[in-house]
């Protein structure tokens, strides 16, 4: 699998996929997409990167342990639910905030951050699994 062509193209593919995964995640509320799909695309990118450049390189590039990202995701998702405490409404009641920046308005909402949490969990967990399997394989070979 480690052909020259694959190794050369892989970083390009990976970068594109990662950007695309974030895009899919963020647009999810109004267009097809969302945290689950985005996370899967991102994890696939990491898997491809791992195959091409080796697990050590990927871990170095990620800087953070993927499981930590997943943990952060669960925390973020749970935390957005807790925020509704401040509006004296039940757990996970959504809160919307419209930030006007120049001509456009950026809608910030707890469901958005919740979705980002989902993204982090799926991305982190599945990347961790893929990397662990790959490193297991590398050690054996």
């Amino acid at each position: 699998m480690n052909t020259i062509i694959f190794r050369t193209i892989a970083p390009l593919i990976v970068a594109t996929m990662l950007v695309f995964s974030v895009y899919v995640c963020l647009r999810g509320h109004n267009e097809p997409g969302g945290g689950f799909i985005g996370g899967l695309i991102g994890a696939a990118a990491i898997g491809v990167f791992g195959m091409a450049s080796g697990v050590a390189t990927v871990r170095q590039a990620l800087r953070v342990d993927p499981m930590a990202i997943a943990g952060f995701g669960v925390f973020l998702a749970g935390f957005t639910g807790v925020l509704s405490l401040f509006t004296a409404s039940p757990f996970m009641t959504s809160i919307w905030l419209y930030l006007p920046i120049g001509e456009t308005t950026i809608p910030l909402s707890t469901p958005l951050f919740f979705d980002i949490g989902v993204y982090c969990v799926v991305f982190g967990t599945i990347s961790a699994i893929a990397l662990a399997l790959e490193s297991d394989r590398e050690e054996e070979l």
């Binding site: 969302g34 689950f36 899967l40 799926v122 967990t125 599945i126 699994i129």
Partner: peptide, 13 residues
């Protein structure tokens, strides 16, 4: 189904 797919995948792994 969307969550079922993702959970099914975790289970599979």
């Amino acid at each position: 189904i969307l969550t079922a797919i993702v959970i099914g995948f975790s289970m599979f792994a």
